[in-house]
Design a protein around this nucleic acid. Structure first.
Lengths: 153, 153
DNA sequence: TATTGTTATACTCTATAACTATA
DNA sequence: TATAGTTATAGAGTATAACAATA
């Protein structure tokens, strides 16, 4: 039985909210550093997410990318443009509706994304290696709740 | 007993790392929106953290701020400068060591910070209100592990 | 010499406003 | 008219490199 459940305490949504405000920014900082530290400083966190989305959703549009990332269309447009210039993304035009774009990840982009993911995952895992299996299970449970509460698309 | 513990599964540090990479950026997006949505769009997430640190640590230096935020000294210097211009922070010079600055939060900065925190906390709490007390306890447990693993200063 | 902090420069992220092209 | 996307503009966050002031 996990330590946190030995004597059941009532946790309010407000307390969780406070903890989110205090803890997450620091973890995100480390995530940014981890990503910069691999394969020649290639991708920012938002670019990584953008590529991962395009990889999952073949022929996605700029609007879909914006919606997933939770940013405006101009922001997504600029970000995609940078990824195109970097050779990570290919833009095609939808022949049915010529306003829409069909974004595709390139082989280079796929490799780039996987390298960054592998490196950052290892860096995170190194930090988490000090935790017991029980604690890792608790962390995963917490993340699952976060995913459920804040999932987009 | 929480659902996640009914049939104990082994969770690896790598799996937790992957989940962190996928889940946290989206939550941070919402945090940014929440902060922008209160009291006239006053503070960014980094500015909020900066103010909170200066509030906790009276007479802190730029170097200490940089260390806490996990950024370089120029980055912290610029950020503090913006907060000074906004009237949220006061800079004094250490009379013992005239190279060091002594950063102090102003009353206006304190109010600003508390308004933003209250607003963002409420927004987060609203999202989390759908979760059961048990799930909130699990989330808090996960955040506690994160805090322990990634705490600065 | 070492440390504290700033300035200069450059890039990304982000938003709003205004625009073009297509439907 | 409505939608998809881009361009223009502005400001914040971030880093590195070079510098000034102080110890």
């Amino acid at each position: 039985m996990p330590a946190s459940l030995k004597q059941p305490v009532t946790v309010t949504a407000e307390e969780c909210a406070s903890e989110l405000l205090e803890v997450l920014p620091g973890v995100m900082n480390d995530m940014r550093q981890f990503m910069r530290g691999h394969v020649g400083d290639q991708l920012s966190v938002p670019q990584f997410r953008c590529l991962a989305f395009i990889n999952r959703h073949g022929a996605s549009s700029v609007t879909e990318v914006a919606s997933f990332l939770g940013v405006t269309k101009p922001t997504a447009s600029v970000m995609v443009d940078r990824l195109v210039k970097a050779g990570s993304v290919l833009i095609l035009t939808d022949s049915q509706d010529r306003r829409r774009t069909q974004l595709h990840i390139t082989d280079a982009g796929k490799a780039q994304m996987q390298d960054i993911r592998r490196g950052a995952r290892q860096d995170f895992a190194k930090v988490l290696a000090a935790q017991s299996p029980q604690e890792l299970a608790e962390l995963m449970a917490g993340l699952t709740i976060l995913r459920r509460s804040f999932h987009r698309i």
